[in-house]
Design a protein around this nucleic acid. Structure first.
Lengths: 358, 358
DNA sequence: GTGAAAGCGCTAACAC
DNA sequence: GTGTTAGCGCTTTCAC
C-alpha cells in the first residue's frame, strides 16, 4: 500500500504572514474517501467514474470507503470541473395544463435512466417571466434545454445560441429552430380536423379555443379549410369561435358551448383546443339534453388518458407527448456524448383518434 | 480609475518545468466582466450580488460590461464557493397524477420568486428508484428537498439527515419527521368522510381506492368508522372495496363501479380515492342509468379544478396543494436565510366541498 | 494503473 | 468601498 503524503511545507510569498482560516463546508469529500482507501483523490475519482481504469483491489477499497462513510459526490464541483452538469432544464407554459405532462413525465424518466436530472421551469404563458427564467437556466450550465413551443423572442434565441447549450424546441415546427426540434404542424391539425368533420357530414362547425399562439394557428387553418370546403354560412368568412383563457378548463368548455349555441344555434360540430374543454362541452351538452354525436359532434386535442373512457368516448387529436419527451432526451444525451445528430428536426405528426363523440 | 494588474510572475517550485495548458471552458467569466469594467473580480461579484456595497460609478460600469457582453453568472461555481445552490429538489410519485400538480406548480412559482429553481424527480410509487434519486439529489447539494409523503426507508431518512439539507415532508403527518412537515391526516379524512355520508343518510357505503399507502390508511379509517356507525352489513367487518392501481384513472372508476355493484348491488355511496376515479363512477353511473345522488352518492378526493363544474358537481375532499407548496417553499427559503422556523410541523387540514353528487 | 499539479469560476475572509 | 488571497470539491493534463 502506498502512503499518501500531505504536503510538508508551502513556500510562502514574502510579506504574507497571516494564516487564513479554511472554510470547509463540513461535508465529506472525495479526499476523505481517498484517504480512507489509501489512494490519491484522483484514483478515488476514477474508481467511481470509470471503474475499469483502476485495479480490482483499489476499486474494492474505494467502494468500501464510500459505503462506510456514506459519501455522496458533489455534483456542483464535478460539474464545474468537467463542464458537464448532468442537468437538463425544461420549460413549460404551465404544469397544470395536463397536455404537457406526458412529455415532462417521459423526459424525467428518460433522463433519469442516463443519470440526468430535470430542472423544471414554468414560463406562465406570458413572455415576461421567460427572460429571468432563461438566465436562471443558462447560469446553471445545463447539458440541455427543452423548450415547449418555439422560442419567439429574438434576444432569448440569441442568448441560448451564444450559450452553446444544446436546445430542443418542441410541440411545434419551424424552419429556423435554435438548434434541435421535435414537433408537429398545428396548421396541419387544423386542416385535418376540418376535413375529418367534413367527411363525416358536418357542415356547421365551430371552435372553442385557448388564446395561445399555437391554438390560434390551428384555428386559422381549421377555419380556412372549413371555408374552402363550404362549411361556412354564406355571409361569414370565419368559423364561429369562442376564445377562452389558457390553461383551459372544463368550466370554460361548458360556458363556451352555451355561448356558441346562443349566437349560432345550428352548429353541428365543435373542435376544442383541449380535451378538458371537450369534456366541458360533453358535460354541458348532456345537461342541456343535446345528443352527442347525433346533434353535435365533439372533437378534442391532447387525447388525455381519460378521453377514451368517457361516455361517449371522445374523439381527439392525439399527440404523442411521451415520444416528444423521449426523443428530446435522446437528442440531448447524444449531444452530451459528443455525437452528431444526423436529423435534428423531427416532425412526429399526430393522429385523430376517432371515437363515439363524432 | 484603478488599473487592474495581472500577476507578473509566479514563483515556480523547484523541479517544475513544464507549463501546463489551461483548460478554459470558453465561456465568459466574471473576471472578463471585471476586466472590462476595470475592477477586481470580487468587486464585480459584489456589484451583481449586493449592489449597495459598491459605489454608483462602479455599479454602472459593471452593469454596462454585463450588458455589453451578455454575461451570465455560473451558478455551479457560485454554488460551490458559497455552499448555496439556489436549487430545491422535489420528489413526487408521479407527475401524471394531477393531485400533486397544484403543489408542484405553487412550489415552482414560490421558489422562482426568490430566485430558486426546482429540480423535479419522480419516484414512481415503487421505492426502488427512490434511492438512486436520492443520491442524485443530495449530490446536487440543494438548499432544500420537498418530499411527497413521509419517507419510510430508514436508510434514506438517515442519509438525508446526515446530508444536513433542509427537508420538508408533505401530504401526510407523522410525529417523527426527518425535519419539517406540511401535511394533513389521512385517518381523519377517512373518519370525516364516513361521518359525512352517515349524516346524509347513507348506510351502504363502499370505496374505490388506489393501492398506495396513504389511500389504504384513509380506507381503513373510513371502514372502521363506518362499522362504528352501523353502516356495515351484519355479516361483514369491512366496507366493500375495489382496489385499483395508482395512478388512478377514469377507466378504473368505471370498472370499479361495475365490479362493486355486481357483488354489492345495494350500495348507496362510494368514496373514491381521487376525483378522476369519481369522474369514472359518475360516467359509469350515467351510462348505467343510476341516478346520482338519488340512488348513489359519490365523493372524491383532491378537488381537482374540473370537479366543481361536473354534472352533477362532484363532492370532494379538498386539499390545498397550493398551500402545501407555498409553505414548503417558505420553510426552505427561511432556512436558507439562516432563520429558525418556530413551528416546522404544520397540519393544514382538509375540507369537504359538498356539492350535488352527495 | 496511479499520482501530482493545476485549474474550473466563483465567493468568504481578511486587509487597507 | 475595493482589493488580495485562498479556497469550495472535483476533474483534466501530464508524468511515471
Amino acid at each position: 500500500m502506498k502512503k499518501t503524503t500531505t504536503p510538508l511545507s508551502i513556500t510562502e510569498a514574502p510579506g504574507t504572514t497571516a494564516v487564513r482560516s479554511r472554510r470547509k463546508s463540513g461535508g465529506l469529500t472525495l479526499s476523505d474517501v481517498a484517504r480512507i482507501a489509501d489512494v490519491a483523490p484522483i484514483t478515488a475519482s476514477r474508481a467511481l467514474k470509470s471503474p475499469d481504469l483502476v485495479s480490482p483491489a483499489v476499486l474494492q477499497r474505494v467502494r468500501d470507503a464510500v459505503e462506510k462513510t456514506g459519501y455522496v459526490p458533489n455534483l456542483l464541483a464535478g460539474g464545474l470541473a468537467s463542464t458537464k452538469s448532468k442537468l437538463v432544464a425544461a420549460v413549460v407554459p404551465t404544469i397544470t395544463g395536463a397536455v404537457f405532462l406526458e412529455m415532462v413525465q417521459s423526459l424525467t424518466a428518460s433522463l433519469a435512466a442516463s443519470g440526468y436530472q430535470l430542472m423544471l421551469g414554468q414560463s406562465g404563458y406570458e413572455d415576461s417571466r421567460e427572460d429571468a427564467l432563461l438566465e436562471a437556466i443558462i447560469g446553471r450550465r445545463p447539458d440541455g434545454v427543452v423548450l415547449t413551443g418555439i422560442m419567439r423572442s429574438a434576444l432569448a434565441k440569441r442568448r441560448l445560441q451564444v450559450s452553446g447549450i444544446p436546445v430542443v424546441e418542441t410541440w411545434d415546427l419551424t424552419s429556423t429552430p435554435i438548434d434541435m426540434l421535435v414537433g408537429f404542424s398545428h396548421e396541419k391539425i387544423g386542416i385535418a380536423v376540418a376535413e375529418f368533420l367534413h367527411a363525416r357530414g358536418r357542415r356547421r362547425v365551430a371552435t372553442i379555443s385557448a388564446n395561445d399562439d399555437r391554438a390560434v394557428r390551428r384555428n386559422k387553418a381549421f377555419s380556412d379549410t372549413a371555408q374552402n370546403l363550404g362549411m361556412l354560412d354564406a355571409d361569414s368568412t370565419e368559423v364561429p369561435t369562442c376564445i377562452v383563457p389558457a390553461p383551459t378548463t372544463l368550466g370554460s368548455g361548458r360556458s363556451g358551448l352555451r355561448s356558441l349555441l346562443q349566437d349560432h344555434p345550428t352548429i353541428d360540430a365543435i373542435f376544442c383546443s383541449s380535451d378538458m374543454l371537450a369534456l366541458g362541452v360533453l358535460t354541458e351538452a348532456q345537461a342541456m339534453g343535446i345528443a352527442v354525436p347525433e346533434k353535435l359532434a365533439v372533437i378534442g386535442l391532447g387525447d388525455l388518458s381519460f378521453s377514451c373512457d368517457l361516455n361517449p368516448a371522445l374523439t381527439s387529436v392525439r399527440i404523442d407527448g411521451s415520444a416528444i419527451g423521449a426523443i428530446a432526451a435522446d437528442f440531448i444525451i447524444q449531444r452530451a456524448d459528443g455525437k452528431v445528430i444526423s436529423d435534428p428536426i423531427r416532425d412526429i405528426g399526430f393522429s385523430i383518434m376517432e371515437r363515439d363523440s363524432t
